Simulated assay, not measured.
Amino acid sequence: MTAPEYPGGEEGLLKLLAQNARYPSQAHIAKNVGRAIMQVTIDAEGRVRDIKAAHTDSPYFEKEGARVLRLMTRWKPAEINGSPVSSTYLFPFTFQMRGADGNELPLPKDHLTEVHEKLLADAPHQPVYLAEEIVIVGLGVVKAR
């Protein structure tokens, strides 16, 4: 079995996500912190399909995660015994912010392990892969106009 591969490999994927992910302005103003664990299907042709939140602490985080993931181009699909197959990829986005005292605001519980285990149990024959955590940091507090 071989994992799906993004053009430019993991480095290319992380570069795309890092350069394009933004802290949602509504969440920033409200000082919301949290996570969005986004689930994506990479089909047997390498197309990105079915982008959805497997878990989210805010609809703003889900919307931003989906927006950034829609920027991905076609992948080299996963293979089993030399044949391309669909696979599931999880992308954990963490939205972190510092408070007025300079300390990071506390994050809600991380559900990544639970989500990963549930996917493996629900579809044991479809490969599930996990991307590196993408951390988006909100600096300061934006004033509402």
Rank of each mutant, 00 (worst) to 15 (best):
E114F: 06
K52W: 06
L69M: 04
E10V: 07
L14W: 09
E133Q: 14
K52M: 10
E114G: 07
R74A: 00
G9S: 10
L105M: 06
L17T: 04
P24Q: 05
L14V: 05
F61Y: 02
Q39N: 10
A66P: 03
R47S: 12
D50N: 14
L14G: 01
E132M: 06
W75L: 03
K31Y: 05
E117C: 00
H28N: 08
N32L: 15
P108T: 13
R35I: 10
D57M: 01
V85T: 14
A100N: 11
E5R: 14
A27S: 15
T88D: 09
V137G: 12
K109D: 03
T113C: 00
D50K: 13
A54I: 04
E45Q: 15
K109E: 06
A53L: 10
E133Y: 13
R70K: 12
Y89S: 05
A78K: 00
D110M: 00
V68D: 05
E62M: 11
L119N: 11
V135K: 14
Q39C: 12
A3N: 09
A30N: 11
L90Q: 01
R67L: 06
E104W: 07
R67H: 08
V33I: 15
T88Y: 12
M38W: 09
Y129V: 03
E5C: 08
H111K: 15
L16H: 07
I136C: 07
N81I: 01
V68G: 04
L139G: 08
V68S: 02
P59I: 03
T56P: 07
L120N: 10
K31T: 14
A100Q: 15
P7T: 12
G46C: 12
D101H: 09
E117P: 00
L105V: 01
E79L: 10
G138Y: 04
D43R: 15
G46F: 12
G65R: 11
Q19T: 07
A21E: 01
I80Q: 14
R35T: 08
R145W: 04
D57W: 02
G8C: 02
P124G: 07
L17P: 01
K63S: 09
R35M: 11
T94Y: 12
P77E: 04
S83V: 13
L69V: 04
D50R: 13
E79C: 09
A121F: 09
A21P: 01
L112A: 00
G46M: 13
Q39G: 10
G138H: 03
Q126P: 01
P77S: 02
H28V: 01
A21N: 00
P4D: 08
Y23A: 03
T88A: 07
S86D: 09
V135Y: 06
I42R: 13
L17N: 04
P24F: 05
I42V: 15
P106M: 06
L17A: 00
F61L: 01
R22L: 05
G65N: 11
M38T: 12
F91L: 08
V141I: 13
W75V: 07
E62A: 14
L120M: 07
I37W: 03
A30D: 10
N32R: 15
K15H: 05
Y129N: 08
E5A: 08
V142W: 10
T88E: 14
G65Q: 13
I42S: 13
Y6C: 04
G9H: 09
R74L: 00
D50I: 02
R145T: 04
P77N: 06
E10Q: 11
G46Y: 12
